[in-house]
Simulated assay, not measured.
Amino acid sequence: MADWSQNKLGRRAFLASTAAALATPAFAQNVNDGSTTELEREIDTSVRRNISSFRTLDWQPYFSNLTKGAVLVDISSRALHYWEENGTYHLYPCSVPLTEDLTRRGRTQIVLKDPEPDWRPTPSMKIRNPEWPDYVGPGPDNPLGTRAMHLSWTYYRIHGTHDTRKIGRRSSNGCIGMYNEHVEQLYEMALVGTQVLLI
């Protein structure tokens, strides 16, 4: 009986310590070492936590219809929700703007789909980061990844990234970033004219 009690206590201690370890916030590695292929603002110690909330949502509270499909980006949970016109639902993790002053919320739409995006920093990016190149062509070093969908707001896009450490974080200069394989899926489904809401 004594052995069983000790064993039971040992299991309880193990389960308690495992639960505590899982509940402890996971901090991502520091990416300020210059090895990143993203040319967006660096992730500093105040925003290094990588959290993304994967709760499913219904489209009706946000859109009146699904004509041409609908994209909802939840800045707080760092998740992109997409409903096809037939109602089929997709949920993806994403990166969001680094700070509130870079964040834009509201309704827009996809106005251009770019299968081989190239990148130029915006004027404000160049002011903040004068060392950045003026142009990066399509390819593995491109900050926009393998696909980009331009929104009706100037300089704002939903795009891929080769720097997967940024997904699930506040890490962009305003755009919504996705894993390349996910943005390629979305690119195939979404249309020019797809409604987009950022909340």
Rank of each mutant, 00 (worst) to 15 (best):
R170Q: 14
T67S: 12
G177H: 14
G139F: 10
Y155S: 09
Q6R: 05
Y155A: 03
E40V: 15
I43D: 10
Y155C: 01
H81R: 03
G193W: 09
L57N: 06
S17Q: 12
E84Y: 12
Q29R: 09
A23F: 15
T18S: 11
L15K: 11
S171V: 12
N32A: 12
R105H: 04
M125H: 00
T88C: 10
G168I: 09
L186H: 02
R165Q: 04
K8W: 09
A16T: 04
L197I: 00
A2I: 08
Y155H: 02
R105I: 08
H81Q: 07
G106L: 02
G34I: 10
R165C: 02
D44A: 07
E131L: 15
F14R: 15
L72M: 06
T88P: 05
Q195T: 07
L186Q: 06
D33R: 09
L112G: 01
A148W: 01
V192L: 11
L144N: 03
L9P: 01
I51Y: 01
T122P: 03
L15Q: 14
E188F: 00
D33N: 13
T154G: 00
D141C: 04
E116K: 04
N7I: 14
Q29W: 08
I51D: 06
I176R: 07
V183F: 01
E40P: 03
R169A: 03
S172F: 09
W132T: 00
A13S: 15
L22K: 11
M189E: 03
E100W: 02
L191S: 11
V31Q: 15
A190M: 04
I75N: 14
L80F: 02
Y82D: 08
G160S: 06
Q6H: 05
A23P: 04
W119H: 07
E40W: 14
A148S: 14
I75V: 15
T24R: 07
G137H: 07
E38H: 04
E188P: 03
W153D: 00
T122A: 02
P61N: 09
G193M: 10
E100N: 04
A13G: 06
R55M: 11
A190Q: 02
G174V: 04
Q60N: 10
Q29G: 10
T122W: 00
K8V: 09
